[in-house]
């Protein structure tokens, strides 16, 4: 088997080649050191936890733990114990005192993912904790203090959940500090090539196989795809072709159904190009450039010719 010789790498920040992500990172840097509650809103798979972790890394709390908890994955009956811990004998099976995520995150960051899924009955307890930073273990009689920053994430805007009666209004206003919308992958296409390469490197290591080769046409198709499942979906597709086409060339027909149309066709007739006048001129220019590169199946020289600019100008604009 062909072995890879590239130096194993440690990535110290998420992929942020696209202007929209660079702007997002500037905001993260600005709020990281401030004592404010941050809520990430974004589609499934868009990288909300990665951004929360980035926020933790940029803050003074980076020497402390980062403790994630997925509110959608915990049964309602266990939620309070999971979050606040329990005393010995608090319930059947509690043979020892148990540590909750809140205590585990002491000195660091507690990340509540899919917070809208938190049981309604527990929301007043979370509200009290956010206001006082004091809590009581299940079955306990003593209030405990903890220094922890709470960061939240949700798929849907919490306003909708409040309107639907699934989320308490008082809790909503308490955590309504700074809401950051994590851009979906289709709005940060310039990050896709780097993500593809990183996933190929990692997944060929995980599965102990030589990396596949992606043709320019396949790369362009992946860049032009809309990715409703975002980065997670991209990773899954790369995992599939890494396993099935190890050491071979990945052709368009090797991609899952839905990817078989060439990028140029998808860009030309599948998704008509529209300009959003709410965007800045720089953002519109970037969108035009990305669209033309997709039309030219990833070829920068051809894209430059089509745009009527020099290759150097195009490369400089992409780096800006």
């Amino acid at each position: 088997m062909t072995r890879r010789t590239a130096l194993p790498t440690v990535v110290l920040e998420p992929m942020m080649a696209s202007p929209v992500m660079r702007s997002f990172d500037r905001i993260l840097r600005a709020v990281a050191g401030k004592n404010v509650t941050v809520t990430f809103v974004g589609e499934s798979g868009s990288g909300k936890e990665v951004m929360a972790r980035r926020l933790h890394d940029l803050s003074a709390r980076r020497t402390g733990p980062f403790v994630p908890i997925n509110c959608a994955a915990i049964p309602a009956t266990l939620f309070e114990s999971e979050l606040f811990g329990h005393e010995r004998g608090a319930f059947t099976g509690a043979s020892e005192r148990g540590l909750g995520k809140v205590e585990m995150a002491a000195g660091g960051t507690l990340f509540l993912d899919e917070v809208a899924e938190m049981p309604l009955a527990l929301q007043p307890k979370l509200l009290r904790f956010l206001e006082t930073h004091r809590f009581m273990r299940v079955g306990g009689i003593k209030k405990l203090d903890v220094d922890v920053r709470v960061v939240l994430a949700t798929l849907r805007p919490l306003e909708d959940e409040v309107r639907a009666g699934r989320f308490r209004e008082d809790l909503y206003y308490r955590i309504h500090g700074i809401t950051l919308a994590v851009p979906p992958l289709r709005e940060r296409r310039r990050d896709i090539p780097g993500l593809i390469d990183a996933f190929i490197a990692q997944l060929s290591a995980v599965h102990d196989c030589a990396p596949p080769r992606l043709t320019r046409r396949v790369r362009a198709t992946l860049i032009a795809h809309d990715w409703p499942g975002n980065v997670r979906q991209l990773r899954n597709v790369i995992e599939l072709v890494t396993i099935l086409r190890s050491e071979k060339t990945v052709r368009l027909q090797d991609l899952p159904p839905g990817f078989t149309r060439p990028a140029s066709a998808a860009a030309a007739d599948g998704s008509p190009f529209a300009i959003d006048l709410e965007q800045s001129l720089a953002q519109i220019v970037d969108r035009v450039i990305d669209h033309v590169i997709a039309l030219e199946q990833g070829s920068l020289p051809r894209a430059a010719r089509r745009l009527g600019v020099s290759l150097r100008t195009l490369q400089r604009r992409r780096r800006a």
Partner: peptide, 25 residues
């Protein structure tokens, strides 16, 4: 850890052995 990894994956792996006991335990 299979490369590439985020730096925080290394940090989490290094911290994995730190004892986390409840206060008063």
């Amino acid at each position: 850890l299979p490369a590439p990894v985020f730096g925080w994956d290394l940090v989490d792996a290094l911290r994995a052995t730190e004892p986390t006991r409840p206060r008063g335990a």
